[in-house]
Simulated scan of single mutants.
Amino acid sequence: MKVKAKDGVKVPLEYQPAAFIEQEPVEVEESLYYRRRIADGDLIVVKEPRKPVKSKE
């Protein structure tokens, strides 16, 4: 899943406490750690825009 930190917050990566998630979206695995940070409001899930489907006309 893709996440980014809310404005003004730096969230440490799960197993890399010296590396942080900031305002740029990052791909992370869906673990308890990241789900908890999302529930706390520190991380925001970034939804990918859907690609338009080409019609066969």
Rank of each mutant, 00 (worst) to 15 (best):
M1L: 05
M1Y: 04
K2R: 05
K2D: 01
V3N: 01
V3R: 01
K4Y: 04
K4P: 01
A5K: 03
A5R: 04
A5N: 02
K6F: 05
K6W: 04
K6R: 10
K6L: 03
K6C: 03
D7K: 15
D7E: 09
G8P: 06
V9D: 03
V9F: 06
V9W: 09
K10I: 00
K10D: 00
K10R: 05
V11R: 00
P12L: 00
L13H: 02
L13A: 01
L13V: 00
L13S: 01
E14L: 04
Y15A: 02
A18I: 02
A18W: 05
A19D: 02
A19I: 06
F20E: 00
F20Y: 08
F20R: 01
I21T: 00
I21Q: 02
Q23Y: 13
E24N: 12
E24M: 12
E24D: 05
E24Y: 13
V26C: 05
E27H: 14
E27G: 10
V28K: 12
V28D: 04
V28N: 06
V28R: 12
E29M: 13
E29C: 12
E30Y: 11
E30L: 11
S31Y: 11
Y33T: 00
Y33V: 02
Y33I: 03
Y34F: 13
Y34I: 02
Y34R: 10
Y34G: 01
Y34S: 03
R35P: 03
R35N: 10
R35S: 11
R35E: 05
R36W: 15
R36V: 07
R36F: 09
R37D: 06
R37F: 12
R37Y: 15
R37P: 04
I38K: 10
A39T: 05
D40G: 07
D40P: 04
D42H: 14
D42Y: 15
D42Q: 13
L43C: 04
L43I: 03
L43Q: 03
I44C: 08
V45S: 06
V46R: 12
V46G: 05
V46I: 08
K47N: 11
K47R: 15
E48K: 14
E48N: 10
P49F: 10
R50K: 11
R50H: 09
K51N: 14
K51D: 09
K51Y: 11
V53A: 10
V53I: 11
V53Q: 10
V53P: 06
K54C: 09
K54N: 12
S55A: 15
K56I: 08
E57I: 10
